[in-house]
């Protein structure tokens, strides 16, 4: 896992480097100072950081063989992660409405690809956490529960991608149907699954959960860097700074 995270460091390092290299290089708007809303993202950052706390508590509970408590904190971690993703979806939607798309300028390109890949990592983490929550039970994970959860999550993902126009051929109505159907399937699977009473040794799963936790904390830490670079440092980049940098490049080069 550590080697995998090492390579993930280079992955996000490259994406962040791209963002920094192209900072203030946009030739047209919208520019960050017209778009970025630091307070809202601060809230979502706080949510994500709290999810790391929940993750620590979950691992601690599972290591002490407290199945119910551990499962509660795992689900809490996943919930906080999902809230963060909700903020991100809301933010992306706002930006689209204000005219910032990946195609319109370099800021849009680098912003959406960097934060989008981070969001994809959070999504993978949430799915992983849900699977772990399912594993931390006495009877284990029933195949049909798992299939329901996976299919549901997949349908929701497709729906969100449809809403965000990543899948262009999917109409908004179709996307909402996808999301709703996925949610129903997931909830049904969850209800069925968690109706099973719990009283068993879950400490054997602590090692697996620790790997999950490593991944989750890594995704969190990367977000701290992204938040700093994209939101705090670049929030005041404007048309003036861009023009100054671009003319400086051409004059001084």
């Amino acid at each position: 896992m550590w080697t995998f995270l090492g390579s993930e460091c280079m992955f996000f390092g490259s994406l962040i480097a791209t963002f920094l290299v192209y900072r203030n290089q946009s030739t047209t708007g919208p520019f960050p100072d017209e778009i970025i809303d630091v307070p809202i993202t601060t809230v979502s950052t706080f949510v994500l950081l709290m999810s790391s706390l929940a993750m620590v508590l979950a691992l601690n509970a599972v290591q002490r063989n407290q199945a119910n408590l551990g499962r509660f904190w795992i689900l809490m971690t996943a919930l906080l992660g999902t809230i963060f993703l909700g903020f991100q979806a809301f933010e992306f939607n706002e930006f689209f409405n204000e005219g910032l798309t990946p195609r319109v300028n370099l800021f849009g390109t680098t912003f959406f690809v960097l934060t989008g890949f981070h969001g994809a990592h959070v999504t993978v983490g949430v799915i992983w956490l849900l699977v772990m929550a399912g594993v931390i039970t006495p009877k284990g994970l029933s195949a049909w529960t798992l299939l329901g959860a996976v299919l549901g999550a997949y349908a929701i993902l497709v729906g969100i991608l449809g809403l965000l126009d990543v899948i262009r051929n999917l109409s908004d109505v179709g996307a909402v149907i996808f999301i709703a159907a996925g949610a129903v399937v997931m909830v049904a699977a969850g209800l069925k699954h968690f109706s099973i009473p719990t009283k068993l040794n879950v400490a054997s799963q602590a090692g697996n959960l620790e790997v999950t936790a490593l991944y989750w904390h890594f995704v969190d830490i990367v977000w701290i860097v992204i938040f700093t670079v994209v939101y705090l440092v670049s929030a005041n980049d404007s048309i003036e700074t861009s023009e100054a940098i671009i003319s400086g490049l051409h004059g001084g080069g």
Binding site: T18, V21, Y22, Q25, S26, T27, T28, P102, R103, N105, L106, G108, T109, T110, F112, V113, F117, I246
Partner: peptide
């Protein structure tokens, strides 16, 4: 490669000099 792929398939600007890409 992902950046190039986004440029080619989804019209982003990573390496598009007109938009400031290098």
């Amino acid at each position: 490669l992902i950046e190039l792929q986004f440029d080619r398939l989804y019209g982003t600007n990573f390496f598009n000099p007109v938009a400031g890409g290098e």
